[in-house]
Simulated assay, not measured.
Amino acid sequence: MADGKKLQPIIIKRIKKSGHAAHGGAWKIAYADFVTAMMAFFLLMWLLGSTAKGELDGIASYFASPVKVSLMGGPGTGNSSSILPGGGRDLSKSFGQMDSGDKERAAKVMGAQMAQEAKARQEAARLDALEQKIAEIIKSNPLLSEYGSQIQL
């Protein structure tokens, strides 16, 4: 100003850089959902792998008939608290939950299991006899004997 020169204003040109308009950030949300689902799946598999057999049976029976099991309870709701097959403190047992002083209950459980096996054998024998009877009827009836090779019992 003393020399007579005019001061020129300083002009700063700022270039605005915009993001990539082609794909945005929606892929990050989809990827986060995928990772969360994989983590949940891993936790589910890990928990099912470390759950006792009785609890797995309870879970399976719940999904087979959820209202019955939730209202009435019973042995299907998970009857074991240990991953080991026998449960309890005595690791030599291989059936059900048994404490060291519970011999009477163990005998009762084994008796019930034997009765159930005998009933199953009796039912199998009855079904075999019924199958033989039906096969004889098919052979004796001339109309059915034509299709005997197509009937499976």
Rank of each mutant, 00 (worst) to 15 (best):
I29Q: 10
L56F: 00
E55S: 07
P75S: 09
S18Y: 14
F34K: 15
F63V: 07
S61L: 10
I59Y: 05
G58L: 01
G58Q: 05
D33W: 03
S65E: 11
A22T: 14
L44Y: 09
F42T: 15
S65W: 01
L47P: 00
I29W: 03
A22Y: 07
W46P: 00
I12S: 12
G49A: 06
S50C: 01
L44S: 09
S50M: 05
I29D: 09
I11R: 07
A26M: 04
N79V: 09
T51S: 04
G74M: 11
S50R: 08
A40R: 15
D33H: 07
L47G: 02
M45A: 13
P75I: 10
S80N: 08
S80F: 01
M38W: 09
L56W: 03
F63G: 00
S80H: 07
V69C: 01
S50H: 08
M45V: 15
D57L: 13
A26F: 02
I15T: 05
E55C: 03
R14H: 10
K68L: 11
M38R: 15
G25A: 12
H20S: 12
A32S: 04
A52M: 01
A26V: 11
F42S: 14
K53W: 03
F34G: 08
K28A: 06
M45P: 01
L71C: 07
A26Y: 03
A30T: 15
W46L: 11
G19L: 11
A52D: 12
D33Q: 08
